[in-house]
């Protein structure tokens, strides 16, 4: 499964409606609402080597099973608070007591001497559009109430060739161009080409476009 994330900082809250109008001809259906939350944490250790990254990001998706991906440097973990996501072997072997807390809570409570939360970016009540080629999720992004831009997530079904996907993405980019939008960040890279962990890759793309 492939994905690409686009973030248009130079946009207005109404740009999402324009984008919808452009897509209207290709639309098969309008699907569920979605949201995400993007948090940045800063490593507070003073004597860190100057070249090592200090920032860590955590992204919680309402789609993809409400999972949270926490990503730093080249490593990522996927955490979940959904009780059904705890593998039964962990419960039976006495590792889990079945009440999981969000990983963010662990960071902000128990590890706050190491990690300080710096910003929180939210996309609430986003729209999901289904076309013949792609699933397109679009939402306006806010940080502490202030408008930050428009975020578009492109996803295709499994068993679609990489080249096909690229063409489909190019088509969307053309639409944006027609709308007069050419200045934006786009990322379709993968955090690790070997592993193909979809949630981690998607989170990585979010980090790339949203990192200020």
């Amino acid at each position: 499964m492939n994905s690409t994330v686009i973030f248009i900082e130079r946009s207005a809250p109404a740009t999402i409606t324009d984008f919808y109008d452009v897509l209207a001809n290709d639309l098969i259906s309008v699907k569920e609402k979605w949201s995400f939350e993007f948090k940045t944490f800063r490593f507070t250790v003073k004597n860190l080597p100057p070249d090592s990254p200090r920032l860590m990001h955590s992204i919680t998706f309402s789609h993809h099973g409400n999972k949270t991906v926490t990503i730093k440097n080249k490593s990522a973990v996927v955490t979940s608070t959904n009780p059904g996501d705890i593998p039964t072997s962990l419960i039976l072997n006495g590792c889990s007591s079945r009440s999981s807390e969000p990983f963010d809570h662990l960071l902000t409570s128990k590890l706050s001497n190491l990690w300080t939360q710096r910003q929180s970016i939210k996309g609430d009540f986003g729209s999901t559009y289904q076309t013949a080629e792609l699933i397109i999720r679009a939402t306006n992004v806010f940080s502490y109430g202030g408008f930050k831009g428009l975020l578009i997530e492109l996803e295709c079904e499994e068993n679609v060739q990489d080249t096909d996907f690229e063409q489909r993405v190019a088509k969307i980019r053309n639409y944006l161009k027609e709308m007069g939008i050419e200045d934006y960040k786009i990322c379709g890279d993968s955090i690790d080409p070997l592993m193909k962990n979809y949630a981690c890759n998607l989170a990585f793309q979010y980090v790339k476009v949203l990192e200020f």
């Binding site: 490593f43 080249k74 490593s75 996927v78 955490t79 889990s96 662990l106 955090i191 592993m195 981690c200």
Partner: peptide, 23 residues
């Protein structure tokens, strides 16, 4: 206080490398 890690990912995908990034 506990949290469930369902999977690990990234180019250095082991849990140890993530925790070392965590400090």
């Amino acid at each position: 206080t506990e949290s469930t890690i369902t999977t690990t990912g990234g180019s250095s995908a082991s849990i140890t490398s993530f925790l070392s990034e965590l400090g």
